[in-house]
């Protein structure tokens, strides 16, 4: 091939849950080292797209290629191998509450890769320091932390094994604006430092502007607009316009019951 295959290539991805079509032919590519942000309203299929790429949900049809390799029909063990390329920050952080903070961060190293606990602990503490948390916090249990701190631990866990691709699921949801900005800064800093490819989903435009190289908007199971982050304000697309200005009036009609 003359030019390098995209890091992630998604083609005609479709998924329905019962009678409800969630993804209706999603197409996008992400180049290596690029940060793509997928924006869209609640329930438009953002999370399902991510979970399909991660192999947590099996798509009905379509193709997902990572580094040019098809990953939609892998066996469990092949999937585990592919998943080593990924790190994921979950919306609610999804920390294991039975484990200490540092054990959470080191989890992928110890369980996934069989690293010695002492060595994994050192790496975990380094990663925690990178997200601004000290060693004392590493000894706490996740339930003792605030939402913002849990997100930071989640970020440390996502980057612990130096993944090539990192996913962020609503990284700023549920945080105050300042903590949200702290998380955004951390995401930009860690992704740039590691040279990783990043895919984020969010409906927080401030966050999207800050962390995106490119933005794609998903609506009714399709990508309806895609372009450089700086072009988002001149998209010329009525749906994008309505979304980024957060207006209740426009082509997107919310099904709100009026009494």
């Amino acid at each position: 091939m003359a030019r390098q295959a995209p890091k992630i290539a998604v083609e005609n991805l479709a998924k329905a849950f019962g009678p409800k079509t969630v993804l209706d032919g999603v197409n996008f590519n992400v180049k290596a080292g690029e940060s793509l942000v997928i924006i869209g309203g609640s329930g438009t299929g953002k999370s399902v797209t991510l979970k399909c790429i991660l192999g947590l949900i099996r798509p009905d049809s379509g193709s997902i290629r990572i580094d040019g390799h098809e990953v939609t029909r892998l066996s469990t063990s092949e999937r585990e191998r592919v998943n080593r390329k990924f790190g994921m920050l979950f919306q609610g952080a999804a920390l294991f509450d039975s484990l200490k903070v540092w054990e959470n961060v080191a989890f992928g190293l110890i369980q996934g890769r069989g690293m010695k606990r002492a060595k994994a602990r050192d790496i975990a503490m380094t990663k925690l320091a990178q997200v601004g948390l000290n060693a004392q916090i590493g000894e706490l249990s996740p339930a003792e932390l605030s939402g913002g701190m849990q997100k930071r631990v989640g970020l440390a866990r996502a980057i612990a094994a130096d993944p090539e691709i990192i996913f962020f699921d609503e990284p700023t949801t549920g945080l105050d604006p300042i903590m949200a900005d702290v998380i955004n800064d951390l995401i930009v800093a860690t992704v740039k430092r590691m040279g990783a490819t990043a895919v984020s989903i969010t409906h927080d435009m401030a966050s999207a502007r800050k962390i995106a190289d490119r933005i794609a908007m998903i609506h009714k199971g399709k990508i309806i607009w895609e372009g450089a982050a700086k072009d988002i304000d001149s998209s010329g697309n009525a749906i994008v316009e309505q979304f980024i200005h957060g207006s209740a009036h426009g082509p997107i009609q919310m099904d709100v019951l009026r009494a």
């Binding site: 947590l56 999937r79 790190g87 979950f90 999804a94």
Partner: peptide
């Protein structure tokens, strides 16, 4: 989503 997190951590 802790079970999903397990899968993403191989």
């Amino acid at each position: 989503e802790q079970i999903d997190a397990l899968s993403t951590l191989s």
